Computed example of a mutant assay.
Amino acid sequence: MHRAFSMRLARELRKLGFEYLACEAFTRGVDPNAGVVDRRSGAYLQDPVFAEFIREARRDGWKLVAYEADVDASVQGPERIRQREQRQARNLVEQVLARQPQARIFIHVGYGHALKTPQPLGQGGGSVLWMAGELKQMTGIDPLSIDQSWTHAHPDPSRELSSYRPALALHDGSGPFVLRKADGSARLLQLAPGAVDLQVIHPPHSLVNGRPAWLAAWAQRRPFPIPDAWLPAQGRRLIYAVHQGHPAQAIPADIVIVEAGKPAPALMLPAGQFRFEFEQF
């Protein structure tokens, strides 16, 4: 869901002249601008939604940047975290900002790397300045930092932020939203002031055709009902939809699990032509 929302945001940023898309998920040493999106591209890109985000970004003319850091194997504990954050920020400077100081960059990070203020590590580890804060310190640029990592519904409600459900009551729409105080500053849920600039809150999503509604609303996918002939007589089966012409190691555009005797969810497919593969288990 978060990656589909980021894909939706990227479409609009590209229209505004943003040109570099930097992703923590890209494998260092593998050019994200070349070849198909496959298992070598990055572990997190094995998610079909993330893979399609990157395919779309290429079609839209984004220049993709891999900035993950190589960390010294001998360094452990809090110092290892600090080294990674510093090197990630330095990689972004060296690969983009040192060459083009006015470049407009969309940096897609995981979890706390978007925080701009020092955060305690606990257990005597002191505090650490995460990547966004290191980038600000290195360049003097105050990045617009947006968090969406915790503010969403969870299948296990006990794992939701305690302030999540009360926040939903402040919104009268069905789409993602942000909260602001009377002075216009961001109102953050369980983050210290200044840690990020905005926090996107995602309302719960319904299922349509057995799949989350955001696949159609944000990722612009259309349902492809599973033909009865594809359903297993017993057990379970994975059904893969792979872009036509992509090799076997390419990340599928979508994957569903179907089970004998149970209603089958639809495949949710982006625009294009596909071949379908099956795996019984």
Rank of each mutant, 00 (worst) to 15 (best):
E85C: 12
Q86K: 15
Q86C: 11
Q86D: 14
N91M: 05
V93Q: 09
V93I: 09
Q95L: 10
V96Q: 07
L97A: 08
A98C: 10
R99D: 13
R99E: 14
R99Q: 14
R99A: 14
R99P: 02
I105R: 07
F106G: 02
F106W: 05
I107P: 10
H108Q: 12
G110W: 11
G110N: 12
G112Q: 12
A114D: 07
A114H: 05
L115C: 13
K116F: 00
K116A: 07
K116T: 04
P118Q: 04
Q119G: 10
L121P: 14
G122D: 09
Q123T: 14
Q123V: 13
G124I: 04
G125D: 06
G125C: 01
G126Y: 00
S127K: 11
L129K: 00
L129C: 03
L129R: 00
A132I: 03
G133H: 01
E134S: 02
L135K: 00
K136R: 10
K136I: 08
Q137E: 10
Q137D: 09
M138C: 06
M138G: 06
T139L: 04
T139I: 04
T139M: 05
G140M: 01
G140I: 02
I141S: 04
L144S: 06
S145A: 07
S145W: 00
S145T: 04
I146T: 02
I146Y: 01
I146V: 09
Q148E: 08
Q148I: 02
S149T: 10
S149N: 10
S149Q: 08
W150F: 15
W150I: 14
W150T: 15
T151I: 06
T151C: 05
H152C: 08
H152V: 07
H154K: 11
H154R: 11
P155S: 09
D156T: 11
P157N: 05
E160G: 09
S163R: 09
Y164I: 04
Y164P: 11
R165E: 07
P166M: 05
A167R: 05
A167T: 07
A169Q: 12
D172F: 14
G173K: 09
G173H: 08
G173Y: 06
S174F: 12
G175M: 09
G175R: 14
P176L: 06
F177T: 05
F177P: 05
R180Y: 07
G184H: 02
G184M: 01
S185C: 05
S185G: 03
S185N: 01
R187S: 13
P193N: 03
G194A: 00
G194N: 02
A195G: 03
A195I: 02
V196E: 04
D197F: 00
D197Q: 04
L198E: 05
L198M: 06
L198P: 15
Q199G: 04
P203V: 02
P204N: 05
H205V: 15
S206E: 15
V208P: 00
V208E: 13
A213K: 11
W214Q: 13
L215V: 11
A217K: 15
A219K: 08
R221S: 13
R221W: 14
R222C: 14
R222W: 13
P223R: 10
F224T: 15
P225W: 04
P225I: 03
